[in-house]
Design a protein around this nucleic acid. Sequence first.
DNA 1: AATCAAATCGGAATCATTCTTATTTACAAA
DNA 2: TTTGTAAATAAGAATGATTCCGATTTGATT
Lengths: 137, 137
Amino acid sequence: MNKTSALEHLKSKGYKYTDKREDILSYFEKENGYRSARELLENMRERYTGISFDTIYRNLHLFVDLDILESTILEGEKHFRIKCDSKHHHHFICLQCGDTREIRTCPMKDVEKELQDFAIEDHKFEIYGRCSTCKSA
Amino acid sequence: MNKTSALEHLKSKGYKYTDKREDILSYFEKENGYRSARELLENMRERYTGISFDTIYRNLHLFVDLDILESTILEGEKHFRIKCDSKHHHHFICLQCGDTREIRTCPMKDVEKELQDFAIEDHKFEIYGRCSTCKSA
DNA sequence: AATCAAATCGGAATCATTCTTATTTACAAA
DNA sequence: TTTGTAAATAAGAATGATTCCGATTTGATT
């Protein structure tokens, strides 16, 4: 997912273009990992001094609903990243900086046999730790 | 983990016996899944009308630290279950009732090769859905 | 330019959780 | 058995993330 196709997607669904929406998308496009609402807010305030929590949260959730962003909870706080283009995969997540690394392994194939009588709706496989940069710092 | 060995573990670490601690352990021993602090509180209030949030949370976190309980976040809220006895494994979790089913598959072996330069500290593999009971209800 | 729904602002409200202070209790030592 | 003391608890205030609400502004259509 990138900013251009996200903006097209928004437009096609009848949502309006706003400079703040473009700005949020720019932010996540250039970040390589999970960022909190607060991190986004602080970044946005440099350009929009009066921006409100409501705008941040409303758009974050809209973007998650539209599959433009994906989210996870890190240390009790929701974090967001731009949705990856590549096909189904999982992430290593650095607990210090939030940056991610794709993991191609997905264990669900093996697991489905074990769960015949259950209705599987979702799954989460995440690996946590320190990336090489944070590890040596 | 069961109530008896949990109480012994508490004692051996110098923590005191209290009827509320025993009660919390009884609750989780008889439940087969993840329960929220609020669910525990409501259950405890039937016997201890004046019990405080603080007692609930303090003990839940103590028990997690002592490996008596394990926790995860479901729909934005921390949930707890008694630590399983069997060796390392993961869970299917019913999003409706919180009950769990053991999954023997763990994908970490395959993944470690992919992450040579990262310091792996933890991982989470959970499958979400409806258990057979909730599915048909 | 006029219209109108969508988007935003500002701040109050909510919800889970944590903290603080005073009081009570378990347990060990006398 | 009484006493001393640190641990545990109660009650409620405080916090932090998130959501809600009424009023205002703005984007896009007419």
